[in-house]
Amino acid sequence: MSEKDLILITFIIYGISTILYFLYSFKRKSLVGRLATVVLFIGLLFHTISLIIRSISAGHLPFSNMFESLSFLTWITVVAYLIIELIYKLKTAGGFVLLIILGLMAVISSPLIPKEISPLVPALQSHWLTLHVSVTLIGEAFLAIAFVTSILYLIQERKFRSGKKSRLSATPEELDNISYRCIAIGFSIFTLGALIFGMIWAYQAWGSYWSWDPKETWTLITWFIYALYLHTRIVMGWKGRRSAYIAILGFLSALFTYFGVNYLISGLHSYT
């Protein structure tokens, strides 16, 4: 089986899991819920194999271009989601997280993203490539889940306020709390991977740890937005709706840092 087939199989299995998660959300049959998680695990297994095959045939870990890093991001987001589901017994968010995963995987499979294995240019031949990109993406995976739970919060809170019964099981308070927890984890890991490891690598490769390159600046902007989330929440006691809006904005900024800067603004980071 080729890597392309594996990605396709993964895509289909994730799709089935998404349907099961939504079925569970609306019907609340615990068997369906358990099945959704099991199917997601199977999908993750295929996804893992595809990443391993890619790493072996490329001769380096899958972080060197947009296709590889996106494939890893979707993989680590599934892992992060499964961890959060396990800790917080949160099945409600599963379907919505998976919708984003499916969207990203559709982008990966599209011809927009070249899939060829290209040899590493000199600047990318560093262990910091692995550390910088992988740790950043792990952080972003948790921020992605906070993004989903924040959107769900807004939906749930509106239903609760208008007195309507919601089909989703999680209460707004739970979702708000999980968003905060995910941002605490995601923000810490993102700080380490994107900013600190990025600075160390830049110092090794370019001779200065900070150059105000657009990608660096956008990383800092994203970091500031999450800092805003934490300060308004912890110091000013903001919770709920306003917090959710900042969390959503933060993730959109992270996405722009990831994609937008590469395609819209040129700079030192234009490897992909």
């Binding site: 600046t217 956008w218 902007i221 500031f224 800092a227 805003l228 800067v261």
Partner: peptide
């Protein structure tokens, strides 16, 4: 923080 973010965006 908000002003620094906006100004930084202009810079990019």
């Amino acid at each position: 923080i908000i002003v620094i973010v906006i100004v930084s965006i202009i810079g990019t």
